[in-house]
Every structure is written in structure tokens, then in C-alpha cells.
């Protein structure tokens, strides 16, 4: 069990009622309910489409989860995704070979990750602010330096890569496979590599981690480079799936959706707790929800409303089960 293995006494006490289990239970209930009431919900085609529709969100959520587990947050994840991929498409439009464009795009993303990491680790700007500011800064920089339009279409010159994200392997859509691969890699990274363990330790108690000799600052850099890389990958899959990249998603509420998934899954914002399994549970719940709502033809605004209420309820339940008190709550812990 993920939460139990993180080794906190408090976790074990409330393990039966951990948010992850509650959400899983809600997901199962919703699944059964939709399966019984909505015709065609359980059709294999629909289930695949269900997972596929939230795969991109899931991939982004994994990147976000990694930073949150390390006691950070990456609000710039959407901006990184959109702007880097927009630049790649822009280069493709200008006739740059695919591999070269992707490589340059990736270098750009690594730079973004390093800058964010530097701001958080060395300039000691709270992650919420550093990434919030970077959201607009990345957008502005890319628009000034690289791309001068909002909406980019992948040109036909991009050959097979043009519809990479829309492909199938053994009947499974590429985005689902991409989600699975990223999830697996992230899980292995978190549980079985030193930096992964370090990041979890850092999220649990940054001061002690530092005293214990963990290079916390380089680890933070790594954390943001990874989340930026994941964002880039998600962006490539997304763009090749639909053939466009709209840089306006930077200003949309998509980043809130990503946080919603992460938090719904039971990853605590103060860091140190939770794993990739939580993200998968959160993603599935949202997937089932969105799919059911679409089948029921519930309007977009009402879906948003319900999503917000679910998020609120999840936080309330979490707080009731794992209360904070005045004596132990941290300063500046918002």
C-alpha cells in the first residue's frame, strides 16, 4: 500500500479512511452506477475513450504530483507544455527537421525547469509564486522570442509524427500507452531511485532532509526539470493527437484541473505523502465523471460546477479525517 509504506504513524491510523481509498470507492460506485444506468458506458470502445480522454491530464498530473510530493508545486506546467510545443510546431512550419525541432524544444523545456528550480531552490521564492509568475513569463518570453501566433497547426511537412498521438498500438490509443509509461517510470523513480527517495524525504521534512545530508537544492532543480519534461511530453502527445496547439490554454483553468486530479487522488499539498497510484485513482475518477457527464449531455458549465463541488468535498473530507491543529500547522503553509 502506497501510503502505508511512506512510514508515517498518522497514516497508518487513518489508513482505512485515507482519501485515496475514499476516492477509489467513489470512483467504483460511480463506475457501477454509470455502468448500470448509462447504455453503452461499459462498451470497450467507450472505456478506452474514457481513459484516453483523461490521459493527457493524467500525464500532467504525474508531473505535478512529483513536485507536490517534494513540497513544491508547478503551476507553470501548462505554460511549459503549451509554449514549448508551440515553438516546436512553429519550427516545423519553418521547415526545421522534426528531430531537430523536438530536440530544441526539449532543451528549451529543460531551461524552463532549471529556471523554476533555481528560483525556488536558490532564490528561495515560494514555489507557488515562482511558478505562478513563470506561467506568464514563459508565455511572454515565447511569444516575444519564438512564436507570434496564438493557434498553431502542425504542418503537413511533419510527416508521420503529425498524427503520432492519434495512433494505436495493439488497439490501445497512444495517449493511454504514454500515460501508462510515464506512470510506471515515475513510480519506479519515486520508489526505487535515490533521487526519488530524496524527493520524498524532502517533501516530508525539508530541514531534516537537509541536515541528513540530502542535496536538497539540486534535488529541487531536478524535480522541476522532470515536471517540465513530463509537460513537454504531454504537450507533444496532445498536439499530435488533435493536430494543433492553442497557446491560449495558458490562461485557461486547465492547471486547476491538474491540481484537482492530484488532490482528489489524495496527495497532500504539504508534501511527502502519496504516490503515483494516487494520481491514477484521481485521474480515473475524473475520467469516469467526465465521460458519464458527456454521455448524459450535461452542459459544460454544470460539469465545472460539479467538479468544483467534488474538489471541495474531497478537501473537506480529507481535513476532517486528517485534521490540522493550531500547534502543528506551519507558518506560511497555505
Amino acid at each position: 500500500m502506497q501510503t502505508a509504506s511512506s512510514g508515517k504513524a498518522g497514516d497508518r491510523r487513518s489508513a482505512y479512511f485515507s482519501q485515496e481509498r475514499i476516492v477509489l470507492a467513489i470512483a467504483v460506485v460511480m463506475f457501477v452506477l454509470f455502468g448500470l444506468t448509462l447504455p453503452g458506458f461499459l462498451a470497450p470502445g467507450n472505456l478506452l475513450s474514457l481513459v484516453q480522454s483523461v490521459s493527457i491530464l493524467g500525464i500532467l498530473a504525474i508531473g505535478m504530483a512529483l513536485t507536490i510530493i517534494g513540497r513544491g508545486i508547478d503551476l507553470a506546467i501548462i505554460s511549459t507544455m503549451a509554449m514549448s510545443v508551440a515553438w516546436v510546431i512553429f519550427m516545423l512550419g519553418g521547415g526545421t527537421p522534426v528531430w531537430q525541432a523536438v530536440l530544441l524544444g526539449y532543451l528549451f523545456v529543460v531551461c524552463i525547469g532549471l529556471v523554476i528550480g533555481f528560483l525556488v531552490a536558490y532564490a528561495e521564492i515560494p514555489a507557488i509564486f515562482a511558478t505562478l509568475a513563470m506561467t506568464t513569463a514563459i508565455y511572454g518570453f515565447t511569444r516575444v522570442a519564438f512564436v507570434d501566433v496564438d493557434l498553431l497547426f502542425i504542418p503537413q511537412s511533419a510527416s508521420w509524427t503529425r498524427e503520432f498521438g492519434a495512433g494505436y498500438v495493439f488497439g490501445i490509443p497512444i495517449p493511454v500507452i504514454a500515460f501508462a509509461i510515464v506512470a510506471l517510470l515515475a513510480h519506479l523513480f519515486l520508489r526505487h531511485t535515490k533521487p526519488g527517495v530524496f524527493i520524498r524525504a524532502m517533501g516530508d521534512n525539508p530541514l531534516k532532509a537537509r541536515i541528513a545530508g540530502i542535496p536538497t537544492r539540486p534535488m529541487m532543480l531536478l524535480q522541476y526539470v522532470i515536471s517540465a519534461s513530463i509537460a513537454f511530453f504531454a504537450g507533444l502527445v496532445l498536439a499530435t493527437l488533435v493536430g494543433t496547439m492553442n497557446t491560449r490554454v495558458v490562461n485557461s483553468t486547465m492547471v486547476y484541473d491538474v491540481i484537482l486530479v492530484v488532490v482528489l487522488g489524495g496527495i497532500v499539498l504539504s508534501g511527502g505523502r502519496g504516490g503515483i497510484f494516487n494520481v491514477i485513482v484521481g485521474t480515473l475518477l475524473i475520467g469516469i465523471f467526465l465521460n458519464g457527464m458527456t454521455i448524459m449531455n450535461v452542459s459544460y458549465s454544470i460539469q465545472n460546477l460539479i467538479k468544483g463541488v467534488i474538489l471541495l468535498v474531497a478537501i473537506i473530507i480529507d481535513t476532517v479525517l486528517n485534521p490540522r491543529d493550531e500547534q502543528t500547522s506551519q507558518q506560511g503553509d497555505i
Partner: peptide, 24 residues
């Protein structure tokens, strides 16, 4: 009219809505 959904001018949202609708 079997479905009337909004996608917020976002191609990826449009994709997920439409893929559900056409399977339905």
C-alpha cells in the same frame, strides 16, 4: 440532436467530448 456539448474553444477538450459522443 444527440449531444450538445461545449469544449471551450479547446481542440483537446473537443477531442475528448467527440470521441465519447461518437462511441456512444
Amino acid at each position: 440532436v444527440v449531444s450538445d456539448q461545449a469544449a471551450d474553444w479547446d481542440a483537446s477538450k473537443a477531442h475528448s467530448v467527440v470521441s465519447t459522443v461518437v462511441r456512444q
